[in-house]
Simulated assay, not measured.
Amino acid sequence: MTQIEKYKAFILSLPPGRLSKEQLFVHELLLYEQQHMSIYYVPYEYVNTQAKLMIIGITPGFTQMELAIRCAREDLLSGVPADQIDQRAKKLASFAGSMRKNLIEMLDQIGLPAVLGIEGSRLLFEERRDLLHTTSAVRYPVFQHGKNYTGHSPPILKSPVLSGYAERILLPELLAVNDALVIPLGKAVSEVVQAFAEKGWLSKERCLFDMPHPSGANGHRKKQFEQHRADMQQQVYQWFSR
């Protein structure tokens, strides 16, 4: 269910080209603000219930927010139907930048292309987007002191606001995309999904809990990945062989 109509007038008022924080960190897009934390709208409400793979990040960062809003503006000007705008924005912006490259490399190395019958994991973000659902522990961009929230200060589960977003939005997504292998990226997201599983809301069998976050800022990413790669390969094979 898209909310694009609610934000349509403001998005159309934005100028063409790249958008700055000053243009997007505005009251018209603000969903929540308290002390140093702010949460903003982004057109990310599309859910691919037929996906075979579900990848969960922490929260969209500014790069993803800017791309998604810019994509939505162009689509609104071009007359793209409202029910397609979120889907197109998410396809363009999800894990955009170096994160997507790092993520694709890891997905290839745990054997996903073979079990999904595709040439490489990059196709999940291109022609075979039908196989993939991307989302975040907190669907909407979260910023602290104007910088991307990293999932740790505070931890999502220790914040009533952030954990509330996860329960109200992420949990229903997990239940709706019920045939997908779930890959939470990094410790902060894994903790949220594990908490759902411990409450009996989700099967642990469908979750790969050891995938490191693909951010370039995660200096331990490669070491963490190598430690768990064999186990993840086995779990991928078992899930898709069931």
Rank of each mutant, 00 (worst) to 15 (best):
T2M: 04
T2Y: 00
Q3C: 01
E5Q: 14
K6D: 09
Y7I: 07
Y7R: 06
K8I: 12
F10N: 03
I11E: 11
S13D: 05
P15W: 03
G17F: 02
L19M: 07
S20P: 04
S20L: 09
K21V: 11
Q23L: 15
Q23T: 07
F25R: 12
F25W: 13
F25N: 08
L31W: 01
Y32V: 07
Y32A: 07
I39H: 06
Y40N: 08
Y40D: 10
Y40Q: 10
Y41Q: 06
P43M: 05
A51H: 06
A51M: 04
K52I: 04
K52G: 07
M54N: 13
I55G: 15
I55H: 15
I55D: 15
G57I: 10
G61Q: 12
F62W: 10
T63W: 14
A68W: 10
V80I: 14
D83H: 14
D86T: 06
K90A: 08
A93P: 03
G97C: 02
G97H: 05
M99K: 00
R100W: 00
I104N: 07
E105I: 12
M106F: 11
D108A: 11
Q109N: 13
V115H: 01
V115C: 03
G117T: 11
G117S: 00
I118M: 00
G120F: 00
S121E: 02
R122W: 13
L124N: 06
F125E: 10
E126P: 03
E127K: 09
R128D: 08
D130A: 06
L131P: 01
L131I: 02
L132R: 01
T134W: 01
S136I: 04
S136W: 08
A137C: 02
Y140T: 06
H145R: 10
K147E: 14
G151C: 04
G151L: 01
H152I: 03
S153H: 03
I156K: 02
I156N: 00
L157R: 10
K158W: 08
S159F: 08
V161P: 02
S163N: 03
Y165F: 14
E167I: 06
E167P: 01
I169P: 00
L170R: 07
L171S: 04
P172G: 08
P172Q: 13
P172A: 09
L174T: 04
L175I: 14
L181T: 05
V182M: 07
L185S: 09
G186V: 04
E191G: 08
V192T: 07
V193C: 11
A195I: 00
W201G: 06
W201R: 15
K204W: 09
L208D: 13
P214E: 09
P214T: 12
S215T: 04
S215Y: 09
A217W: 10
N218V: 09
G219W: 10
H220W: 13
H220Y: 12
K222D: 15
K223N: 08
Q224N: 00
F225C: 05
Q227K: 15
A230E: 13
A230P: 02
D231I: 00
M232R: 09
M232E: 05
Q234I: 12
V236D: 05
Y237A: 15
Y237S: 14
Y237V: 11
Q238N: 11
